[in-house]
C-alpha cells in the first residue's frame, strides 16, 4: 500500500500547476460570491458552479490520459518501476493520484459552493452530494482514460474515452434511461448539470456505487493490459 500512496501523492504533486490553474475558477466563484448580491444573482452563481464542475470532469480525462505517456516520455517511469513496485501497484497509484487531484478540486468547489449557493438557500448537504457524484464521475472517467493511455497516446486516449463515456449518454437518449447507467459518468455529470434551486440533484447513491465498482473494474483491466506493455520503448 505504501508505494501506491507514494505514487499517488507524487502524481498529484506533479499535477500541482494544472490543479492550481483549475482552482482559479473556484476562486472566480468565490469572488462572485463576494461582489454580487447572492440572492439576486443566485442563478448565475449556480451556472458558474456547474461550469466549474464540468471543467474538473474534463481535466480528469486529461490527467488520466496523459499520466503514463508523460512518465514514459520523460523516462521517469523507469526510476519508479526499477524499485519494488509492481505494475498493478503503479497503476493503482495513478488511479488514486487522479482521484486525489480531482478530490482537492471537488473539496475546494464544495467549500465555495456551500458558502455561495448555501447563502442562496441551496441545501448544503446537496452541494456535498453533488461533489461526491462529481468525484465518482471523475474517478471513473480518469480510470477509463488511463486504461486507454496504456496503449494509446493522450490525444487518441482522450478521443477513445470520449466515445466510451459518450456512448451510454447517446444510448440513454435513444434507447432509454437505463442505458445511461452502463458507464454512469454522463449520468453523474448530468446530476450536477441539471441541478437547480428547485431540484438540487437527483442521482441515487446506487449510481455513485456503480461508478465506484466500474472504476475498480477499469483499473483491473488497465493493469491487465499494462502488464504486457513495453514501457522502455520510446513513445514519440
Amino acid at each position: 500500500m505504501k508505494p501506491v500512496l507514494l505514487i499517488a501523492i507524487n502524481f498529484a504533486r506533479e499535477q500541482r500547476w494544472p490543479i492550481l490553474t483549475l482552482l482559479l475558477w473556484v476562486l472566480l466563484l468565490a469572488f462572485l460570491g463576494l461582489v454580487t448580491d447572492i440572492h439576486r444573482e443566485r442563478e448565475d452563481l449556480l451556472f458558474v458552479f456547474k461550469q466549474d464542475a464540468v471543467y474538473v470532469l474534463a481535466f480528469s480525462v486529461f490527467f488520466g490520459g496523459s499520466a503514463i505517456y508523460n512518465e514514459r516520455r520523460s523516462r521517469r517511469i523507469l526510476g519508479v518501476l526499477s524499485k519494488a513496485v509492481g505494475r498493478q501497484q503503479y497503476l493503482s497509484g495513478l488511479v488514486l493520484g487522479v482521484t486525489i487531484a480531482c478530490a482537492v478540486y471537488c473539496f475546494a468547489l464544495g467549500m465555495t459552493g456551500s458558502w455561495t449557493l448555501g447563502s442562496a438557500s441551496f441545501p448544503i448537504s446537496h452541494v456535498w452530494f453533488l461533489m461526491v457524484c462529481l468525484l465518482a464521475a471523475c474517478a471513473l472517467a480518469g480510470t477509463v482514460a488511463l486504461m486507454f493511455s496504456t496503449f494509446l497516446n493522450p490525444f487518441f486516449a482522450a478521443g477513445a474515452t470520449a466515445i466510451v463515456l459518450g456512448f451510454p449518454a447517446l444510448a440513454g437518449h435513444l434507447l432509454g434511461p437505463r442505458w445511461g447507467l452502463v458507464i454512469p459518468v454522463w449520468e453523474l455529470g448530468a446530476t450536477v448539470i441539471n441541478s437547480s434551486f428547485d431540484s438540487p440533484g437527483s442521482a441515487s447513491w446506487l449510481v455513485v456505487g456503480l461508478a465506484g465498482a466500474e472504476t475498480v473494474a477499469f483499473w483491473l483491466l488497465s493493469a491487465r493490459i499494462f502488464a504486457y506493455v513495453d514501457i522502455a520503448v520510446a513513445v514519440e
Binding site: 523516462r75 523507469l78 526510476g79 526499477s82 524499485k83 519494488a84 513496485v85 509492481g86 501497484q89
Partner: peptide
Amino acid sequence: PGARRRVGFLA
C-alpha cells in the same frame, strides 16, 4: 518486484 527490491538501477 521482490527481486528488484535487492537491485539498484541507473538508467
